[in-house]
Design a protein around this nucleic acid. Structure first.
Length: 771
RNA sequence: GGACGCUUAGCUCAGCUGGUAGAGCGCUUCAUUUACACUGAAGAUGUCGGGGGUUCGAAUCCCUCAGCGUCCACCA
């Protein structure tokens, strides 16, 4: 029964700021965010894409309102709706931020052992944690906070390590020595996906290499400084110009090293001079070629970005300086034929924009072929569907060109790759760097440092980095023999390796039975910008992890996809349509906008008028319109409430429109009930098809331009007719329920004003038409 | 060099399983001690980027061209 209203209980205008926090806290206290509010319902689950644990809310996160709409809708439909929150440790990102802080204090990561550094970053993240949760609450997100997870939670780390071990046993991960994209500033390698290719105006240098038998061969290169590491000159076997040169010997300038001229189809005759220098240690193609022709690959660029092993010619110089230096030298000695301007693409670090160097390093790789094949099966058979659909071919074409995935990162902040290397008998081949007990940095081969009197315990304690040869014996913690001498892998996993298992690891570690109940999850909703980085990895790893092995069976694939639907939203740009970025200084803080307009208005403005998957420019006029709409809703309620007060009665409402219909005599009122039934059917259909903009527009239009502008006027003219008031109030409250997923706070405030504080619109039944 | 998206009213954008166009803001006129001025009523404004095709009929499907944007790509 509705409570008796106090006279004049409603303010003239709706004040979002005053009610939102109070309402949210009440919801949470009552436990409405937990799936257990509908213990008998069908499971429905969305896993929140975990924001960085130490980050702040931005408009991308605000777009998660789509997930809240889906969750609230399904909760009202009676589902056991679980929206599971969590945060990500964001390895590279976080360590990058932290190292910047260290730098400000005049320190660097190399001043600490791994353990110390990890502890420091852990504390730093703890300090900043919780901010993002508060901010998500402000937007009204009905997340089940009792199930919140962090990627570095012990139970999660354990599963991620198990996955790795399983994959190792199944030969889906392997270790290899090959070129990686290495950032010499951040001190780590990256996967291909993290490389930002930048087009720049460079130069093509034509260098005359002297032949042993006299004469020259001219090679064209964009990287003259690397010729000191060259192992061959290569021409196309069909190239008549160089027919006689194949098999001859080149004598490299200054260092007088002799290298062969070889033939390979790979060389394009029309490019440059048709003769190319081969630098296996610092060029991806050359590396492959060198393997094929069984050439050596001496590295002349170090992990510090400085030249090395150049017989003193360029040693110690940074690559850029080295280039200028060597070009001058070559020019002075008459080895430069010409220098031509040349458009080229250089790989840069997505974090710090440093030019990435291809450097040879032992790393762990995921063998992607079997995983991709299953991921594609799940797409082709529509076990997982992507909305909007045009993102499906984008993902598939990315899969098609994917090379094995480098998951090793030379970061401390992350999940350590859980393997050990047996050094026994191979001490000379292992390189270690560590901080000794006096706090002094040491490095060298294991042999050397042991001979200097450092103990194994001391090395392990201060360990910063191990370079284990590719041939070393790999063991897991429990496989170590008592008298063995082992060094741990010091690299950590690519963050996406752990977050790629997120739907599985979260549901496995929240509440007993969650996994069985909620996996496969219903929807994965995120910005299209992480389709490749994240969605693709979850699909690849999810199928594998959930089955505990690689499966071929379609039925099993169907039952173990990490999510049935993928819903992708677009980017929120600045009011002028430009991408928001800190460096441009055009970042708008969504929380400030919430303070100004109210969470409901921000939510509505974000879904209204933008088709799914399309970018939008943040719009103040849309925010104004949304705020006016909230106020309109409020005043509609106030109108009804004032009528109740004036006539000193309560207009009783029923949940069921169908039931109400039976008792209605006036055909106009009947019409409005039917219109509302149609509305609820339309909104339901729109939501089921993820057409949030259309649902929002329809609700806005109906409530404002039908209900308020027309029906209220009709009822007003015949204000002594109680039936009209009852239908009006019922229709109004019904449309509020339909609107609730979009604007949870106003709709709740109004609902409770009419029906009492102990009721809640968020657990009301979704108005569906039973025919 | 590929792929995807966008091009619709002055501005920002919806609409696209085909039936000759919609919203918000803006503009014009009027109303108004009104639930709400964070209001209502009426109205003006568009050869739906250009060209071609399919169709009884296309903003919506196909082809093509142009401009813009985004993503991808190891060519020295």
């Amino acid at each position: 029964m509705p409570t008796v209203l106090e006279s004049g209980s409603m303010e003239k205008a709706y004040n979002a700021g005053e009610v939102e926090e109070k309402i949210y806290n009440n919801w949470e206290k009552k436990g409405y965010f937990k799936p257990e509010v509908n213990p008998q319902g069908k499971p429905y689950c969305i896993i929140l894409p975990p924001p960085n644990a130490n980050g702040d809310l931005h408009f991308g996160h605000a777009m998660f309102v789509i997930e809240d709409i889906l969750i609230r809708y399904h909760r009202m439909k009676g589902c056991q709706a679980l929206w599971l929150p969590g945060t990500d440790h964001a390895g590279t990102e976080t360590q990058f931020v932290f190292e910047k802080k260290l730098q400000e204090q005049g320190k660097s990561r190399f001043d600490y052992s791994r353990e110390e550094l990890y502890k420091m970053i852990w504390d730093y993240v703890q300090e900043n944690r919780g901010g993002i949760d508060k901010q998500l609450r402000k937007l009204g997100f009905s997340l089940d906070w009792s199930r919140s997870k962090f990627t570095l939670d012990e139970d999660i780390v354990k599963i991620v390590k198990q996955t790795f071990r399983k994959m190792y046993e199944d030969q889906l991960v392997y270790r290899d020595y090959r070129l990686v994209n290495y950032c010499t500033r951040d001190g780590t390698s990256f996967s291909d996906l993290e490389v930002v290719n930048k087009e720049t105006e460079g130069s093509l240098y034509y260098i005359k290499f002297p032949l042993k038998n006299g004469g020259f061969v001219t090679v064209a290169t964009t990287r003259p400084e690397t010729f000191l590491g060259d192992v061959a000159v290569m021409v196309n076997p069909k190239d008549k110009r160089y027919k006689d040169l194949v098999g001859q010997t080149v004598v490299l300038p200054f260092i007088e090293r002799e290298i062969p001229i070889v033939a390979d189809e790979y060389v394009k005759m029309e490019f440059g001079t048709g003769a190319v220098k081969v630098t296996p240690a610092h060029d991806f193609n050359d590396f492959e070629i060198a393997r094929k022709h069984k050439l050596t690959f001496p590295p002349i660029i170090g992990f510090d970005g400085k030249m090395q092993n150049t017989k003193g010619i360029l040693d110690g110089l940074y690559v850029k300086q080295a280039r200028t230096e060597i070009v001058n030298k070559l020019e002075g000695a008459g080895f430069i034929e010409k220098i031509a301007p040349h458009k080229m693409v250089i790989p840069t670090c997505y974090k710090c924009k440093t030019v990435l160097e291809p450097l040879p390093l032992e790393q762990w790789y995921v063998k992607v072929q079997p995983l991709i094949s299953n991921a594609i099966k799940s797409l082709d058979n529509k076990f997982t569907k992507i909305y909007p659909a045009n993102f499906t071919p984008i993902l598939k074409s990315w899969y098609a060109g994917l090379r094995d995935w480098n998951i090793s990162r030379q970061n401390v902040w992350g999940i350590q790759i859980p393997v050990w290397y047996n050094t026994t008998g191979h001490e000379a081949e292992f390189n270690v760097s560590f901080i000794d007990k006096k706090g002094v940095s040491q490095s060298g081969s294991l042999d050397e440092v042991l001979e200097k009197g450092h103990s194994m315990e001391e090395i392990l304690k201060g360990l910063q980095k191990v370079n284990a040869p590719i041939t070393s014996e790999v063991v897991f913690e429990d496989e170590k023999k008592e008298n063995g001498r082992y060094l741990p892998e010091t690299d950590t996993f690519d963050t996406w390796f752990s977050s790629g298992q997120w739907p599985y690891v979260t549901l496995k570690t929240t509440k007993l039975g969650d996994f069985e109940k909620f996996y496969p999850t219903s929807v994965m909703e995120t910005g299209y910008d992480i389709l490749k980085a994240w969605i693709s990895r979850m699909l690849m790893l999810g199928l594998y992890v959930a089955n505990g092995q690689h499966v071929e069976d379609l039925g099993k694939i169907k039952d173990t996809v990490p999510f049935k639907d993928v819903v992708l939203h677009g980017l929120v740009n600045d009011p002028l349509g430009k991408k928001m970025s800190k460096s441009k200084g055009n970042v708008v803080n969504p929380l400030e906008v919430v303070d100004q307009y109210g969470a409901d208005s921000v939510r509505l403005a974000l879904v209204y008028g933008t088709a799914l998957g399309n970018d939008q420019a943040m719009s103040y006029t849309k925010l104004d319109a949304s705020k006016k709409f909230a106020n309109k809703l409020w005043n509609m309620a106030r109108f009804i409430e004032m009528a109740e007060k004036d006539t000193n009665q309560i207009f009783e409402v029923t949940d069921s429109l169908a039931e109400l219909k039976n008792s209605i005599k006036d055909s106009v009122n009947l019409d409005w009930i039917e219109k509302t039934e149609d509305l609820s059917q339309e909104i339901t259909a729109y939501l089921d098809k993820y057409q949030f903009n259309l649902a929002a527009e329809r609700l806005y239009d109906f409530i404002w331009h039908d209900l308020a502008d027309k029906y209220i006027e009709i009822v007003k003219k015949d204000s002594l007719n109680r039936e009209g008031w009852i239908v009006l109030k019922t229709v109004y409250l019904t449309s509020l329920k339909l609107l609730h997923p979009f604007m949870p706070f106003v709709t709740e405030e109004i609902f409770q004003t009419f029906l009492g504080r102990e009721k809640s619109i968020m657990i009301e039944k979704w108005p569906t038409v039973v025919s």
